[in-house]
Simulated scan of single mutants.
Amino acid sequence: MAKNPYQLNIRVDLELKEEFFTYARENGSTVTELLVEYMKACVGRPTAKAAEINTDELADIKARLAHLELEVKKLPALAMQ
């Protein structure tokens, strides 16, 4: 991740901070990476996770969804009880 000259300082309780640092480390990330990805998602910017899905995977997901939608339409309507 490119270094930026700006910092954001926040206040959290020590237990939450320690749990979050542990979570980041156990998931192969850093606290900064996690927070920046969350901020991007909140404001509608593309995230690294979104970039991980390639066009072939997206086409496959769309085809599977279309198939499921057709199958659901074949099911009889559920009677109201």
Rank of each mutant, 00 (worst) to 15 (best):
66 A>R: 00
68 L>M: 05
18 E>H: 12
42 C>K: 13
57 E>S: 13
67 H>V: 00
33 E>Q: 13
52 E>S: 11
70 L>Y: 03
62 K>Q: 10
20 F>E: 12
24 A>K: 03
71 E>F: 02
36 V>I: 08
21 F>M: 14
55 T>F: 07
64 R>D: 01
60 D>A: 15
53 I>T: 04
54 N>Y: 08
45 R>M: 13
43 V>R: 06
64 R>W: 02
25 R>P: 08
44 G>R: 05
50 A>G: 15
27 N>P: 01
65 L>A: 07
62 K>T: 02
17 K>C: 03
30 T>M: 09
33 E>C: 11
51 A>G: 10
50 A>N: 03
28 G>D: 13
33 E>R: 15
51 A>K: 09
63 A>W: 02
63 A>N: 01
19 E>G: 11
21 F>I: 15
23 Y>P: 04
47 T>C: 03
69 E>T: 03
44 G>C: 07
58 L>S: 02
21 F>A: 14
69 E>R: 01
20 F>A: 14
53 I>R: 06
29 S>K: 15
53 I>N: 03
48 A>R: 05
28 G>H: 14
53 I>P: 02
66 A>T: 02
55 T>E: 15
40 K>N: 10
53 I>A: 06
27 N>V: 03
55 T>N: 12
52 E>N: 11
68 L>P: 04
54 N>P: 06
39 M>T: 11
64 R>G: 02
68 L>Y: 12
45 R>F: 12
39 M>L: 10
45 R>W: 11
44 G>K: 07
55 T>M: 11
32 T>R: 15
20 F>R: 06
35 L>W: 06
47 T>I: 02
20 F>N: 11
36 V>N: 01
25 R>Y: 14
61 I>E: 12
52 E>H: 08
62 K>E: 13
33 E>M: 12
23 Y>W: 07
63 A>L: 07
58 L>H: 10
61 I>P: 02
25 R>Q: 12
36 V>F: 00
34 L>K: 02
22 T>E: 09
61 I>M: 00
66 A>V: 01
70 L>V: 08
24 A>S: 05
69 E>W: 01
